[in-house]
């Protein structure tokens, strides 16, 4: 069976990361920005499990790390959504570019 080289995973992960970053920068809706960020974190996870699979004796470390990233990402999404919710109530908008009172 042909082995897929680790570089393939890295390239996919990098592409995923770039897509996520693009989304985070480009979308104006705060929820969509948040999703872009989730995409970036998933790219990280892909990296971690790929390395864990390919490296000698690093299986546990990489997978544990990935589990932690997934957990933290959930918490991050929770607090992010809470902030967006409060913002929507207070300002009636969740368009990021419209929120720019603090500057200079």
């Amino acid at each position: 069976m042909a082995v897929i080289p680790v570089q393939a995973f890295l390239i996919v992960a990098a592409a995923l990361f770039a897509l996520g970053l693009f989304g985070a920068l480009r979308r104006t809706n705060a929820i969509m920005v948040l999703m872009g960020i989730e995409l970036m974190l998933n790219a990280v996870n892909l990296n971690l499990v790929a390395f864990a699979r390919y490296l000698q004796g690093a299986l546990v470390g990489g997978q544990v790390f990935a589990v932690f990233v997934i957990t933290v990402a959930a918490a991050e999404a929770a607090i992010g959504l809470a902030i967006v919710l409060l913002l929507a109530r207070r300002r009636r908008t969740i368009e990021v570019p419209e929120i720019h009172d603090l500057k200079g």
């Binding site: 890295l10 985070a24 960020i37 990280v44 390395f51 470390g61 992010g80 902030i83 913002l87 929120i99």
Partner: peptide, 28 residues
């Protein structure tokens, strides 16, 4: 205050994604 929280959160989340990506490569 709300604006501060949103900006801090969005930027912080992106920054920690960058950091993590770097760390995942270091791990590799």
């Amino acid at each position: 205050s709300m604006e501060a929280a949103l900006k801090y959160f969005l930027n912080g989340a992106v920054a920690s994604a960058l950091l993590l990506f770097g760390l995942s490569l270091v791990f590799g």
